[in-house]
Simulated assay, not measured.
Amino acid sequence: MRKSLLTLGLLAATSAPVLAADYTDGDIHKNDYKWMQFNLMGAFNEKGAGPESSHDYLEMEFGGRSGVFDLYGYVDVFNLLSNPSSDKDGQEKMFMKFAPRVSLDALTHKDLSFGPVQELYVATLMEWGGNSGVNTQKIGLGSDVNVPWLGKIGLNFYGTYDSNSKDWNGYQVSTNWFKPFFFFENGSFISYQGYIDYQFGMEDKQSYQASNGGAMFNGIYWHSEHYAVGYGLKLYHNVYGFEDGQALPWAPVADSSGIGHYVSVTYKF
């Protein structure tokens, strides 16, 4: 079974209460779906482990559900035309993020829901930024939670392993949401969608490292069956644990806090 983002949006916006996943009948594939889309992106005043950057990139974004597995991920390719004047010229060409989760409800064939929590997972998150970029693996407990107005959100808690330093370092809380809130007669709609990734408890072993940091993305998007257009405002605070304003071994300064802007045009498969 395949559900488009338009269908998922309509389901998320229904007035009926969101029900907990029920796999007690042993049918772990009854909620299966998949989606994939390409996003042509423009980033402006993006923050990170170096000076702020404005650049283009192409993102292949995908997700879905198959039995016990729930998946979200994307692959970003920067500076598509290899423009020598781009902020990304000479930098890492790609960034990848994969976030597979294993449903404990489906795995055990039990209803583990309680209160607003509808499903529990073993949650993982893998980020690869190339040889000199962010390279972390995270594992912990995930959940789907029903909250007022937004409906079902993902809420995950991880411990973080840093592959660059070969060490466990800190924790991360992540949440994401997709809320259609205005519908047109032709079936298209406008959504509020985004996420929060917040890291804490990190060891600040170097002068440029912070013990906490994160980002919040707030997007307003128009969706049809095959297209989407949107704008996102992203709030940064010591993102990836780099202390804002500190000199770095590989860059003059870490511009890791502030506001970034994103525009995108999407085609959905």
Score class of each variant (00 low, 15 high):
Ser103His: 04
Val102Ala: 12
Val117Thr: 12
Leu104Tyr: 09
Pro116Gln: 11
Lys138Trp: 02
Thr108Ala: 09
Gly130His: 00
Thr124Pro: 05
His109Met: 04
Leu120Phe: 04
Gly140Ser: 14
Asn131Asp: 14
Leu125Ile: 05
Gln118His: 14
Leu104Trp: 01
Asp111Thr: 00
Ser132Thr: 13
Leu104Gly: 02
Gly142Trp: 02
Gly140Ala: 11
Asn156Leu: 08
Asp144Val: 09
Glu119Ile: 02
Pro100Leu: 09
Gly115Ser: 09
Lys110Pro: 00
Ser143Ala: 15
Thr124Ser: 15
Asn146Gln: 12
Asn135Pro: 08
Gln137Asp: 10
Ala99His: 10
Ala123Tyr: 06
Ser143Lys: 06
Pro148Trp: 10
Leu104Glu: 00
Arg101Lys: 14
Val147Cys: 09
Lys110Gln: 14
Thr136Pro: 00
Val102Thr: 05
Ile153Asn: 03
Ile153Gly: 01
Pro148Arg: 09
Glu119Phe: 04
Pro116Met: 02
Arg101Tyr: 01
Ala123Asn: 08
Leu107Met: 14
Ser132Cys: 01
Ser143Phe: 10
Asp105His: 05
Lys138Cys: 01
Phe114Leu: 13
Asp105Gln: 04
Asp144Lys: 14
Ile153Phe: 11
Thr108Ser: 15
Leu141Val: 15
Ser103Met: 02
Gly133Ala: 12
Asn135Gln: 15
Leu141Tyr: 08
Asp144His: 13
Leu150Glu: 06
Leu107Tyr: 02
Val145Ser: 11
Leu107Ser: 13
Ile139Val: 15
Val122Cys: 02
Val122Ile: 15
Ala106His: 01
Ser103Phe: 02
Leu155Val: 01
Glu127Met: 09
Ala106Val: 03
Phe114Ile: 01
Leu112Glu: 05
Asn146Cys: 10
Thr136Ile: 15
Thr136His: 10
Ser113Tyr: 07
Gln137Ser: 14
Gly142Asp: 06
Asp105Leu: 08
Met126Ala: 15
Phe98Asp: 03
Leu155Arg: 04
Met126Asn: 13
Phe114Thr: 12
Ser132Met: 06
Leu112Gly: 12
Gln118Ser: 12
Met126Ser: 14
Leu104Met: 11
Ala106Thr: 09
Thr124Arg: 06
Pro116Ser: 07
Gly154Tyr: 06
Ala123Cys: 01
Ser143Glu: 00
His109Val: 10
Thr124Tyr: 09
Val122Thr: 09
Leu150His: 07
Phe157Cys: 08
Gly140Asn: 07
Val145Gly: 07
Asn146Trp: 03
Leu141Asp: 01
Tyr121Ser: 07
Tyr121Cys: 05
Val147Asn: 10
Leu104Lys: 11
Gly142Met: 01
Leu155Trp: 04
Gln137Cys: 01
Ile139Arg: 04
Ser103Glu: 00
Met126Cys: 00
Gly133Pro: 09
Val134Pro: 03
Tyr121Gln: 11
Gly133Val: 07
Gly151Met: 04
Leu125Asp: 15
Lys152Gly: 02
Ala99Asn: 06
Asn135Thr: 14
Trp128Asp: 14
Asp111His: 04
Gly115Asn: 11
Leu120Asp: 02
Gly130Tyr: 11
Gln118Lys: 15
Ile139Glu: 02
Thr124Ala: 14
Leu155Cys: 04
Leu125Ser: 14
Leu120Pro: 00
Met126Gln: 13
Val134Glu: 07
Ala106Phe: 00
Val134Tyr: 03
Asp105Phe: 06
Gly140Leu: 11
Val117Ile: 15
Val147Lys: 11
